[in-house]
């Protein structure tokens, strides 16, 4: 072993390991940090554990990057660290729509769309837990009444509805406002 390696070998190894560890840590921390800021923005704009129905996205009213002007959004920033959340919705016929549950790390834990849900009312209960059960994002079970578990106390439920212009928006705006969320009494949780 050369003199250089004897002197610096362990130090170089420490450099490589700490560089990899800090790189890995930063990348892992970013989604949670960004989601926390987004959650706060949404909760300040509406309020936590209730739905806010955003109008059509324009250059003048956008607050989140890369929102789609072809969709209308209803948001529900939720905090289930103490009580579960219930989301309810009556499907809108003839339109693409989806409800996505994002956890506090920006990961979609669950998605339900118009084709999966059918015509009946939708009920989704969201609880906080660390079980290993995976909430399938394209589950084909009884999706109109789903139970979703996420690993973080906070998250966001997001309704997207495809609209085809202003007239279409006016026609369906009242219907999409049937997207509601509320915290549940623990005794009524699934």
């Amino acid at each position: 072993m050369s003199v250089f390696l004897r002197k610096w070998g362990l130090a170089i190894l420490a450099f490589i390991l700490t560089a990899a560890a800090s790189y890995w840590t930063v990348l892992g921390a970013v989604p949670g940090f960004v989601m926390d800021r987004a959650w706060t923005t949404l909760a300040e704009r509406g309020s936590a554990n209730s739905a806010e129905h955003v109008g059509r996205i324009t250059a003048q009213n956008q607050t989140i990057v890369r929102t789609s002007p072809d969709l209308i959004y209803s948001t529900c920033p939720f905090d289930i660290s103490e009580k579960p959340l219930n989301i309810s919705f009556d499907p809108i016929a003839g339109h693409y729509w989806s409800i996505t549950i994002f956890d506090g790390n920006t990961d979609a834990a669950f998605v339900l769309n118009d084709r999966q849900a059918g015509a009946g009312p939708v009920q989704i209960d969201v609880t906080h837990g660390n079980s290993t059960r995976k909430n399938s994002v394209d589950a084909a079970t009884s999706l109109a009444k789903a139970s979703v578990e996420i690993p973080t106390g906070k998250g966001v439920a997001l309704l997207r509805v495809l609209v085809n212009g202003e007239e279409d928006f006016q026609n369906i705006d009242a219907q999409r406002k049937r997207f509601k969320c509320r915290v549940m009494d623990v005794t009524s949780a699934i």
Binding site: V30, V34, M35, V65, S98, T100, N105, T106, A108, V111
Partner: peptide
């Protein structure tokens, strides 16, 4: 890890692939 961090910064709350 990189995709999730970049998407969080540049296109948060993206839908999963199946959607």
């Amino acid at each position: 890890r990189f995709t999730r961090a970049l998407v969080a910064l540049r296109g948060i709350m993206a839908l999963p692939d199946s959607e």
